[in-house]
Simulated scan of single mutants.
Amino acid sequence: MTQPLHPLKPGRRRFLGQGGRWLVTGVLMPLAQPALASLPGARSLSLDHTHTSERLALVYALGEQFVPQALSSLNHFLRDHYSGEAGLMDPHLFHLLHQIRQELRVQQPFQVISGYRSPATNNTLRTTRGGGVAKHSLHMDGKAIDVRLPGVPLADLRDAALALGMGGVGFYPREQFVHVDTGPVRRW
């Protein structure tokens, strides 16, 4: 089933109602990503993973509805790159990334440093990296991602995420990434 991003807006109810039926019945599922991208309200992401060298570009939502196959692809792509374990990513994290790209008016892919992190990996990093890894990291809940955008100053990426006020934002200039999450609004 699809998951809503926000309450439906009256002008989109007819399209989304039909679109939701198409998704559930599988009519849209066989469509290639370019076909999905041409539909009204398509929300897309492009990601390059710095540790696995994988690339992914897809439509993750149509209007207010998430695309289930895209969520599965994103869960796999953002797996723990140390253990290979995939977690369930919070779909609203993808909306946050989409909004950041819109805020910055850029199209280039995010470079992903870290997505999902298993509890075992999180504990190992916490005890071997001399700090900087939270004991109860939102990465373990699939609610956090560490990213950068090539060609965009790191401070601009941080500021765009902060301006949205949609979750936590951590700034790591030495390591060259910004942490964003769908937890409480905070900054560090």
Score class of each variant (00 low, 15 high):
Gln99Asp: 14
Leu23His: 01
Gly41Phe: 00
Ile113Leu: 14
Ala120Glu: 15
Leu71Pro: 04
Leu45Phe: 05
Glu85Met: 11
Leu36Cys: 03
Glu103Cys: 13
Tyr116Met: 10
Gly84Thr: 10
Ile100Trp: 02
Ser83Thr: 15
Leu31Arg: 02
Gly131Val: 08
Leu78Glu: 02
Arg21Gly: 08
Leu39Arg: 03
Leu36Asn: 00
Arg21Asp: 12
Pro34Leu: 04
Arg105His: 13
His92Lys: 11
Val106Glu: 05
Leu36Pro: 01
Ser44His: 13
Gly19Phe: 01
Thr121Asp: 07
Pro119His: 07
Val27Trp: 04
Thr127Glu: 11
Gly20Thr: 10
Ser73Lys: 03
Ala86Cys: 13
His98Gly: 04
Leu39Cys: 04
Gln108Arg: 13
Glu103Ile: 04
Arg43Asn: 07
Gln102Ser: 11
Pro109Ile: 04
Ser53Val: 09
Val24Tyr: 08
Gly19Lys: 01
Tyr60Val: 02
Tyr82Ser: 09
Leu78Gln: 01
Leu47Phe: 08
Leu56Trp: 02
Glu85Trp: 06
Leu31Val: 00
Tyr60Leu: 04
Gln18Lys: 12
Pro68Ser: 11
Thr50Gln: 13
Pro68Phe: 06
Leu78Gly: 08
Ser73Leu: 14
Ala61Tyr: 00
Gly63Leu: 06
Ala61Ile: 04
Ala57Leu: 05
Glu85Val: 15
Pro119Ala: 09
Met89Lys: 03
Leu104His: 10
Ala61Phe: 01
Tyr116Cys: 09
Arg117Asn: 10
Val112Gln: 02
Gln102Met: 10
His76Thr: 14
Gly130Ile: 07
Ile100Asp: 06
Pro109Asp: 05
Leu71Ala: 05
Ala32Met: 03
Leu62Cys: 08
Arg117Ser: 10
Arg129Val: 01
Thr50Pro: 00
Ile100Asn: 02
Leu104Ser: 11
His81Asn: 13
Gly132His: 09
Val67Phe: 00
Ala42His: 09
Gly26Lys: 07
Asn123Leu: 14
Ala32Phe: 00
Asp80Cys: 09
Gly63Asp: 03
His95Ala: 12
Asn122Lys: 06
Ala32Cys: 04
Val112Cys: 12
Gly17Thr: 10
Thr128Phe: 06
Gly84Asn: 09
Arg79Tyr: 07
Phe110Val: 12
Leu62Pro: 00
Ala70Gly: 10
Ala61Ser: 14
Glu103Tyr: 00
Ala32Trp: 00
Ser72Phe: 07
Ser44Val: 04
Pro119Tyr: 03
Phe77His: 12
Ala42Thr: 08
Arg79Pro: 05
Met29Thr: 14
Leu23Gln: 03
Thr121Asn: 10
Phe94Val: 02
Gln107Asn: 11
Arg105Phe: 06
Arg43Ser: 02
Asn122Ile: 05
Arg79Asp: 07
Ser38Phe: 01
His92Leu: 14
Ala86Thr: 14
Gln33Pro: 07
Met29Lys: 09
Ser73Asp: 14
Leu47Ala: 12
Val106Pro: 05
Asp90Ala: 11
Gly87Tyr: 11
Leu74His: 02
Leu96Ile: 05
Tyr82Glu: 13
Leu62Tyr: 00
Arg101Gly: 07
Phe94Ile: 03
Leu47Val: 12
Thr52Trp: 08
Arg129Ser: 13
Asp80Trp: 06
Phe15Tyr: 12
